[in-house]
Amino acid sequence: MTVTVERGARAVGKYRQPGPRRPRTRDSYALFLLPGILAFLAIVVVPFLMNTGVSFTEWQGVGSPKWTGLANYRELMDDAEFWASFRHSLFMVIAMAALPTVIGLVLAAALFDYIGKHFGSRWAAVLRACFYLPQVLPIAVAGIVWSWILAPDNGSLNELLKAVGLGSWQQDWLGDPDIALYSVMGVMVWVQIGFPLVVFMAGLQRVDPQLYEAAELDGAGWWRRFWHITLPQIRPEIYVVLTWCTIAALKVFGAVYVLTKGGPGGATDVPSYFSFSTFFEKTQVGYGAAISTILTVIILVLSLIGLKFQTRSEDADEGIRT
């Protein structure tokens, strides 16, 4: 088998030397791209351009849109609801990107080199599965579970507080404008933690165990090994997780829809819910399109920044190895 393969490769190499045929055979692969490109044009590119176009108009969804230039964007700049929704987005970034990354790192390191080494990989796998479980749950279902637990009367959390004698801590977790945002954040941390944990644990398997052994011989404690070996070694994974989770946080919709519908009084409104309700409840399509266009620009810029950090750290990584 290997012989034929090698001979074949050599024959092709020789055959290809003259060259003029090469571009043609190469490009006929483009036919395989055709269905994909057409589908993308129809489902992603055209709707996206339409949405961007509509954002410069005033339109109720029926009749023809009226061109208004940048009026929607100017209006947004003065819209307190808009600013509030993006401020809440920052809270979501904390709950869905920053906290899960930090907690995920500590958990992954603990599972990998404490539990995995001293109690066996089975323990580590079972614990990892527990942390990962919420990730496979549809976000709408996670929302139902938590709105039932956080219900003001007879909800499990309030009952639990009463049972342990902390009755005065009982709250209307999702109904109180001062608390609702933090409650949603708590739910999102619970939902999100599994993702960084699994990615980091996979990344840790790449790390050369000799590094840890050497550090241990030098008398470095767990914390210093974590800081000086684990963190730098899985930097690419950290960038990937931070980018993905930040984008997911900016897009969060289902949880808000099910838990609070942006309420009470807009206390948990986020850009995606804001654009959804502007589109379909207020039917101010042009205005909704402007909100989603701004959201898109922010997400694309963040993706590019994330990608840049990621490739840079991978390059640096390879530099160290060679």
Partner: peptide, 21 residues
Amino acid sequence: AFFVLANMLPQEALVYPIYYL
């Protein structure tokens, strides 16, 4: 790059035109 960007686009920016079309 085109496919990656398409993957990043928030569905909020597609949902109304898709609904309309």
